[in-house]
């Protein structure tokens, strides 16, 4: 039962990777590779130990943990991209508001006279 749930969750991540491919190929490939590796490890857990030994990692659980670290890095990068996209939108909005409301120089107080007092 748990295997089915994990496999479905990892298939969802593969779908996500597919839809992310245009926004960032690097992130999409990273998530896809991690998803495929995750499905493989879920379906063939005994292979993790032999694979770990070949890679010089130690235990299969350690290998899975390291894969989790790498996938978390990709997720972090993807989140940064989303934040960046939002930031661009917010910046443009603020810029438009500023440009539409320029405050022209105060002609009643020519340059050189004292500045307004502090509030």
């Amino acid at each position: 039962m748990i295997k089915a749930i994990l496999v479905v969750a990892l298939l969802v991540s593969l779908c996500y990777a597919y839809f992310q491919r245009r926004k960032s190929r690097l992130v999409a490939v990273g998530i896809a590779l991690t998803g495929v590796a995750g499905i493989y490890f879920v379906l063939y857990p005994s292979h993790t130990s032999s694979l770990a030994a070949r890679l010089g990692v130690g235990r299969g659980a350690d290998l899975v943990f390291y894969c989790w670290i790498v996938s978390s890095l990709f997720i972090w990068i993807d989140l940064q991209f989303k934040i960046l996209t939002l930031q661009v939108a917010v910046t443009e909005l603020n810029r438009e508001l500023a440009l539409r409301n320029p405050r022209l120089p105060d002609r009643t107080n020519p340059a050189g006279e004292s500045p307004p007092p502090k509030p």
Binding site: V90, T91, N94, R95, L97, A98, L99, N101, P102, R103, L104, P105, D106, N109, P110, A111, E113, P115, P116
Partner: peptide, 30 residues
């Protein structure tokens, strides 16, 4: 903003703080 305007500058104000790079681009565009 008020002091810059009183000294003779046109002032544009960002409704939220964005950073010097953003402020420069706004000014350049203006």
């Amino acid at each position: 903003g008020e002091r810059a305007r009183s000294a003779g500058a046109t002032v544009l104000r960002h409704p939220m703080n964005l950073g010097q790079g953003a402020a420069l681009q706004t000014g350049i565009r203006y």
